[in-house]
Design a protein around this nucleic acid. Structure first.
Lengths: 201, 201, 201, 201
DNA sequence: AATGAATGAGAATTCATTCAT
DNA sequence: CATGAATGAATTCTCATTCAT
C-alpha cells in the first residue's frame, strides 16, 4: 500500500500540526510529534513543507482563511429587525467559530503572534477587521436609526468581537473540563447579554 | 557597578523575564535574553533560580498573586446602588488589571497553560475563580432583588470575566499600535455595555 | 561511507568508550572523545544511548558479563591433582583476564565504583563473588583432604583473587612500558608463588 | 575568633580533599565540596592553592611522601631469620599502609594516574620502586642463601608488592561493608600465604 | 516518494576561577 | 585575608534539517 492517499496528505499534516501546536505551542512542538501523529517519518514532512516555520505559517494562514464564515452566517440570518440581526450574528458566529479548529487559531495568535508579526497582521486583516467592521456597521446603522446606543461604536464593536473570541476560547483554555455541549447556550447567553445588558428593564 | 544592588535582584530578573516571556513565549525565550536584559551573565541567573522552568513558574506564580486586586478595588467603590457597584467593579478592575504586568499573565496562561498544567490551575484558582465568583455573587443578589436579569448567573459571570480579560489583552495582543490612553475609556465602555447592552431603552 | 555499517555500531561505540574511559575516567571523558573515535558526530551517539551515564553503565555491565570466563577455563583444565587444578586456574584465569578489555573493567570499578554504587554491586556479584567462591571451594576441598593449609579459606581466597586482579592491572596501571609478552610469565609466576610461597622447602 | 589556626589550614584542606577525591574522583570533585568540608568559602581555597589541579598534585605528592614508612617499619622488625624478616615486613607494611589516608593514594593513582602522568611517575618512584626493590633485595639474598626460591625475583617482588597493595585496597574498594578490624588478620594471612603458599608441606 | 541514520547549530546548565568589598 | 557574587568556558543533550539508499 505505498499509494495510500497523497491527496489529503497536506490536510492530515495540518490536522496533526494543529493539535500539536495547540497543545505545546510552536517552540514546544517537535517535527517528530507531527510526523508521528500523521504516521510518517520526520523527513516525509519535508516533502510538503520546506521548514517547520513554513508549516506553521501555512497552517495559520489556512486557519485564518476559514476562521470567520461571515458570509455564510450572514446569508443564514433570517431575522428582520436590526437587534435580532445583531443577536443572531453574535450567537451564530460564536457557535461557528467554536467548531473544529476554530479555537486553535485565536490561541495560537495570542501565544505566538508577537514572534510572527505577519501572522498577527494576517489575523487582524482576515479575522479581526472583518468581524469588528461588520459589527460596527450594524451598530452605526442602529445608532442612526435610534435603535442602538453606543457612545463609541468602534470601541463597542471591539468589545463585542473580543467577547465572542473569549467565549470561543474559554472552554479550551480556561475550563478544560467544560462540556462541549454548553457552547450553544454560551453563545446565546452572550448575545443576550451584549444586546440587553444585565440590567432589568 | 554590578556589585551594587543585589537587593532587588529577584525583581529585576522577574521584570526582564516578564518582558522576554511575553515577547517570545516560554520556549522561545533564551536564558541569555533575560540575562542580557538584567545586565548579567547567563550563569548569574542560576544563583536566583535553579532552572529556567523554576524561573518561569516563580514568575507566573508571583503574577497570579498580584493579578487581581479585588479587595482593594472593592474597598474603593463608593457607589450605593447595585448596578453602580457592578459597573464600578468592572470598570475599575479592568483598569487595574491593565496596569503593569497585568496583561502579561493572561497571555502567558493562554499560551503556555497547557504545558504547565499546575500554572493553569493556580491561575484558575487565584484569578478566574475569585473574579467569576465575585461577579456571580453580585448578579445573584441583583436577580433576587429584581434589579438584574440573567438566565444563568454563572454563565453571565463567566462572560463578564472573559470580556474583562479580553479588554485587558486587546491592546497588547490584537492592536499593538493602540494608544495606552484609551484603556480608561475602554474599561468604562465595557462596563456600560455589559450593564445596559447596546439596545436603546 | 558512514552509512555502511550500523550493524556493529554498538560494539564500536563500546570499544571507543572503553578506551576513552580507561584513559580519562568517566568525568574526564567527553562524548566528543568517543564520537570522534568512532568517527561520527556527537549526536549520533545519542541514537544508541540516551545519556552518557547510560553509555557508561551499559559498557561496564557488558564488561562485567564477559570479565570472568570461569566455565570456559574450568573446562579447559586437564590437571588431575587438586594443587595442579588450582595452579592452572590461577594461571589461566589471570591470563584470560589480561586479554582484551579485561583490565579496563577492574580499573573502572576501582576508579568509579563509589560514584556508581550499582556498578560496584554488579561487579562484586558478577566477578568478585564467583571468583572468590570458586577459589574458596577448591581451598576448602584441599584443606579437608589435607592437601592445602589455610587458617581462613575465605580470606585466603580473597587474597588469591586480589593478587590475580592486581596482576592483570599491573602492566596497565603501574608499569605502562611493560611488554605485553610478560603476561604469561607473570601469570605462571603468580600461580607458583600462591601455591608454594617463596620459602624453599 | 578570626585567627583560628591557619597553621594547619593546609592539612585540613588536604584531609577534606582526600576524602572528596576518594569518593568522587578528580573530575567528580567540586571545589565547593572541599571548601564546604573545610568550612570555608570556595574562594578561600585559592589562598592556599592556585588551581584545583595544583591542590590535587600537592595532595598526591604529599600522600606519596608518607605512603611507605619503610624505614620505620624496617627498624621495628626484630625478627632474626630472613623468612621471618620478610614475613614481618609484609605484614607490618600492609598494616601500616592501611592506616589513615594510605588506601586513598593507591586508589587515586589507579583512577587518575593516566591523566596525570607525572603523579604516576612520582608514585612509581616513591612507592612502588622502593617497595619492590626492598622485597626483591630480601628475595635475592634469600635465594643466594638457599632459603628462598624464586625463578624471577623481580617478578616475585612485584607480585608481593601488588598483593600488599590489593590487600590495602580491598576493604575500601571491593568490600565497603568490611569491618576495619580485620585488617590485621588480613595482613598476617597475606604474609603467611606469600611465604608458605597454600600447599601443605 | 519515503526512510532512518547522521549532522551541527544551538540551549541549558555546571563549575573553576576572579575580584570588589 | 575571607567572602559571595559574577563570569565564561566547557559540556551534555536536543532537534530541525539533510541525504544516501
Amino acid at each position: 500500500m505505498p499509494r495510500k492517499m497523497p491527496e489529503n496528505r497536506l490536510d492530515r499534516i495540518h490536522a496533526a500540526a494543529c493539535a500539536a501546536f495547540l497543545k505545546k505551542g510552536y517552540g514546544g512542538t517537535k517535527m517528530e510529534d507531527i510526523a508521528a501523529s500523521v504516521g510518517v517519518g520526520r523527513s516525509a514532512l519535508y516533502a510538503s513543507f520546506p521548514t517547520k516555520e513554513a508549516l506553521f505559517r501555512g497552517l495559520v494562514t489556512n486557519l485564518v482563511e476559514h476562521a470567520l464564515p461571515l458570509e455564510r452566517i450572514l446569508q443564514g440570518i433570517e431575522a428582520q429587525t436590526l437587534p435580532e440581526v445583531l443577536g443572531d450574528l453574535i450567537a451564530r458566529l460564536t457557535l461557528a467559530m467554536s467548531k473544529g479548529a476554530g479555537p486553535v487559531l485565536h490561541r495560537l495568535i495570542i501565544a505566538e503572534g508577537a514572534q510572527f508579526p505577519e501572522l498577527g497582521r494576517a489575523y487582524r486583516k482576515g479575522v479581526l477587521q472583518p468581524l469588528v467592521t461588520t459589527v460596527e456597521g450594524l451598530l452605526e446603522l442602529g445608532v442612526r436609526r435610534g435603535e442602538f446606543t453606543a457612545p463609541d461604536t468602534r470601541l463597542a464593536a471591539q468589545h463585542i468581537a473580543g467577547a465572542m473570541i473569549m467565549t470561543v476560547l474559554w472552554p479550551r483554555v480556561f475550563d478544560p473540563r467544560a462540556s462541549k455541549a454548553k457552547v450553544l447556550e454560551a453563545a446565546n447567553a452572550l448575545a443576550g447579554m451584549l444586546l440587553y445588558g444585565v440590567l432589568k428593564r
